[in-house]
């Protein structure tokens, strides 16, 4: 009986893992397949779809998405540190309520935030801000709560005696920020900013309301094409952008070293 259960459990696990990996495997396979007909294991392999990526049709949206993700992660990193500083470090009056306010955009679905931003810009006549400026606005609101939360977690664990020691030893304010505060919250801040980068780069529900012709992000370009065809070049676009995200994470990890906090914290 017990052995049967173990066997059943393992089979269920394998099936669930297959369910998780199947779509990813299929997309990778399709990106190397020479025909647009969908076959699971193509008999011939080709790199033609990857070669086709070097085209302004894909490069322009890609560059816009990268630009957006960089601006958004830097801006929400800066704003997030400021917010987290007041709430978690300086413990300003009413810090619990202010923290709740800073996190409040999280409880509003993205699609609703998107509608709000597009109606706001249109009804005050700022149509020109649709496109990149509107995208930046909306994405910052989306990512700021995550950065605030991660930076605040880092600051709650901050040993204030270190700063006191630096002050007694005569460090100036800038030195204390530069050499004491920032290094100690660095991993929390970087994991927040990496998260912001990924969710901005992959975002659809907000971007879909704010893009406009000539200023379209990569995911939106892909779904606009997908509504008409399953062109294998789209598989190559998807695989390439996944590789880009993985590369960005590795790069951020090299700069920020945020994985240390996961290693330290887990059992």
């Amino acid at each position: 009986m017990n052995r049967l259960l173990t066997y059943l459990f393992r089979t269920a696990l394998a099936a669930i893992l297959a369910f998780i990996t199947l779509p990813l495997v299929v997309v990778v396979a399709a990106s190397f397949s020479p025909t647009s007909a969908v076959t699971f294991l193509p008999s011939e392999w080709t790199l033609q779809w990857y070669a086709a990526l070097w085209d302004s049709r894909w490069l322009d949206p890609f560059l816009l998405s990268v630009e957006l993700a960089v601006i958004v992660s830097l801006a929400s990193g800066l704003l997030g540190v400021l917010g987290a500083y007041s709430v978690a470090y300086a413990k300003c009056p009413g810090h619990t309520a202010i923290m709740a306010l800073l996190l409040s955009p999280m409880s509003v679905p993205q699609i609703v935030k998107g509608v709000a931003v597009v109606l706001f810009l249109s009804s005050i006549g700022l149509y020109d801000l649709l496109g990149t400026p509107g995208l930046v606005m909306a994405h910052i609101i989306l990512t700021l709560p995550y950065v605030v939360r991660m930076a605040a977690t880092a600051m709650f664990g901050f040993d204030k005696r270190l700063d006191r020691a630096a002050r007694i030893l005569g460090a100036s304010v800038t030195q204390r920020i530069r050499y004491v505060l920032l290094p100690l919250i660095r991993s929390g801040l970087f994991s927040g900013m990496t998260f912001a980068f990924i969710i901005s780069f992959n975002n659809i529900p907000l971007s879909v309301f704010l893009v406009r012709p000539g200023q379209t992000t990569l995911p939106i370009t892909v779904i606009n094409h997908l509504e008409y065809s399953l062109d294998p070049v789209l598989a190559a676009v998807n695989v390439a952008s996944l590789l880009f995200i993985l590369g960005a994470i590795i790069l951020f990890e090299k700069i920020g070293g945020f994985s240390a906090q996961f290693h330290g914290g887990s059992k």
Binding site: L79, L82, S86, F120, I141, L144, V148, V173, L181
Partner: peptide, 30 residues
Amino acid sequence: RAVVPVKGLLPLIAPSLVLVLFFAIPMGMM
């Protein structure tokens, strides 16, 4: 005193301005 000798509320100006302008006003307007 805390790290930076400013009132704890001062750094909040920038994030709350962004939150009001990009989130609270659009939501209210909607």
